Amino acid sequence: MEVFLANINHIESISVLFDRYRIFYNQPSNLEAAKKFLKERFQNNDSVIFAANDNGELVGFTQLYPSFSSVSMKRIWILNDLYVEESYRRKGIAKLLMSVAEKYAQESGAIRVILATQISNITAQKLYEARDYIKNEEFYHYALPLQ
């Protein structure tokens, strides 16, 4: 298993995984929109995507978005997306993707990696807690829907 930093040349394969990721979160499949969205991320350098390759087949990815902490005046990375094909789950690929993402964040001088997951996603919560992510109970997170 190889994990590498994806680029726009991997858009076709990454888009398929990204579409399946969205389906996992109960969104309708829309491969063309997924491809357009990711193409914009690559062109604008809005995110960093790591992909897991098993003998030429992409089987998982994680996407990080940059942010900053004004208080510490340091970079933060938001681990926004993590997906592994169902037939490849429970084989350590998510851990490997996270490890590479965490190393990348550390090497970039970031102060932390943050993430969120659905309350019902117990499997993901166990993975994050096993990797020493701390559930933040000091802050409430709010969102303002605009559409």
Rank of each mutant, 00 (worst) to 15 (best):
F139S: 06
E107Q: 08
L38Y: 02
E129Y: 10
L17K: 10
S87I: 11
A143W: 13
D19A: 06
A105M: 05
G92Q: 06
S99Q: 09
Y25H: 08
Y88P: 04
D19T: 10
V71M: 14
Y21P: 00
N80E: 09
L79M: 12
Y83K: 02
E57Y: 02
A143L: 13
I111D: 06
E40I: 09
Q63T: 11
V113D: 04
I76P: 01
T117S: 00
V48G: 01
I78N: 07
Y104Q: 05
Y128R: 01
L127T: 08
D46H: 12
G109K: 04
A110H: 01
L38S: 00
D132H: 05
N55E: 15
Y142R: 14
R22F: 06
M1A: 08
H10Y: 09
S47P: 04
R41A: 10
V59A: 01
A143D: 09
N53Y: 04
T62A: 02
A105K: 02
N45K: 15
L97D: 03
K135Q: 12
V16H: 08
L115P: 05
V100H: 06
E107T: 07
A51C: 14
E12T: 08
K39S: 15
P66K: 04
P145S: 11
A51L: 11
D132Q: 09
A130M: 08
Y128H: 03
N26G: 03
Y21K: 03
I122K: 13
E2S: 04
Q118M: 14
G56H: 04
N55T: 12
P66Q: 01
N53S: 07
V71S: 14
I14N: 03
L144D: 06
S13K: 15
N45S: 15
F18W: 14
F61R: 07
E12V: 12
E57Q: 11
N26H: 14
V84Q: 01
V113E: 00
A105E: 03
Y83V: 08
I134F: 13
Q118F: 15
F68G: 06
Q63G: 05
L31D: 00
E102N: 11
Q63W: 06
I122V: 15
K39F: 07
A51P: 05
V3R: 01
A94H: 00
E102W: 02
V100Y: 05
